[in-house]
Write a protein that binds this DNA or RNA. Sequence first.
DNA 1: CGGCGCATCACGCGTTTATGCGATTGAACG
DNA 2: CGTTCAATCGCATAAACGCGTGATGCGCCG
Lengths: 218, 218
Amino acid sequence: MNATQPAAIRLWVVEDNATYQDALAFSFKTSGSIELTRQFFNAEDARAALRAGPPPDAILLDVQLPGLDGISAISLFKAAAPAVCIVILTVFEDHRKVFRALCAGASGYLLKTAPAERIAAAIADAVAGGAPMSPSVARAVLGRFVELAAPGRNTYDLSARERDVLELMTQGLVKKEIADRLTLSPHTVNSHLKNIYVKLHVGTRGAAVAKALKERLV
Amino acid sequence: MNATQPAAIRLWVVEDNATYQDALAFSFKTSGSIELTRQFFNAEDARAALRAGPPPDAILLDVQLPGLDGISAISLFKAAAPAVCIVILTVFEDHRKVFRALCAGASGYLLKTAPAERIAAAIADAVAGGAPMSPSVARAVLGRFVELAAPGRNTYDLSARERDVLELMTQGLVKKEIADRLTLSPHTVNSHLKNIYVKLHVGTRGAAVAKALKERLV
DNA sequence: CGGCGCATCACGCGTTTATGCGATTGAACG
DNA sequence: CGTTCAATCGCATAAACGCGTGATGCGCCG
């Protein structure tokens, strides 16, 4: 399909290595879908530019920078331009750094070992709502994710309906609201609550909510 | 570089839709780097084969299957062949399902909207140690990851004492118990509770506990 | 078929909570 | 030195809650 070409992605690059900057600029020139509108050699300048004028669609950001480091820069960039997609491009694969960058608001994390086409594709991916990462980075994130998100093994034999009720409890709803949300009588919700309390071995709403969230029952 | 061609990835596919199976088989035939060695139409047969013989390098697994569903199958596959890379390929984008699949041991998660080349690339990626995901899935995982890994920076200006009370609330204690634990009058606890509710913008104990735990305030 | 678990609904009682209205103290800050 | 604010305590009331004790219908399974 040769649809009308979509507007090119306006990209800024923040990278202190001039040679690498040039290489990137060259590869984007041939890519077509990405328009490299500005280049910076440190994060401060990029930040100032963000605050001064219209933001780009995406920023390709190195971590190792003179002065303000890349990871700290992420939050600042996001504060100045919340909608901008920040993709990290670095040689560092240190997991701590990776996680901090992502938590600070980065949309993607690439290693400089990635081929040029992959970098262009990743930027497009990030702007389109994805989260491009180099394979090893993705695997590390996934590993940590599983560690954090793995549901507790204790299911406490809650029925499906009881889980529904429990979930709404964790959203702070009161009995009547739960009843309305599930189209039930408040009496029925009462029954479910009682059963939940018995199964979770708790006696109060707060304890039930706490147990549910701590043990990831919902 | 035309190095000697690496050994093709031995792949099994578990997918109940015969037409889609054929389409996949065709696309892999043209890909070259992937050798589709076995095809199954349900998870039970695949599991039996895994237990019986040598495992493949990767398994492409649908979620919606007759009988044993794909997500439950992941753990079983992993138990039978820990080294195998499991890549989910499904139409479902339900986040709960995605997270459960990844926690169960899947290495990747693709939507069936992905183009054929992307699927082949993803399998190679997974075998090479990556974690291929469709953009929207990756973003959802990243979002949840940040939620879990990033301590909530919202402190809501809670005072030290209020945090004490909040923490005890998250342990399921009632007002009187909190008072005893902190050697306070129940009236004082009452005051703290009121202030906490105001600062957290909630109106009930359950909501306060939920917010505290979800946003890592304690 | 007959039990069993689940979901649904119902009532009542005593307790806890949420939320008004206060007050006094003491530390912090300009 | 006066103001501010957290921390402590007091009280009253209406609403929500916890908990016991029911009942009815439905589907499943041996």
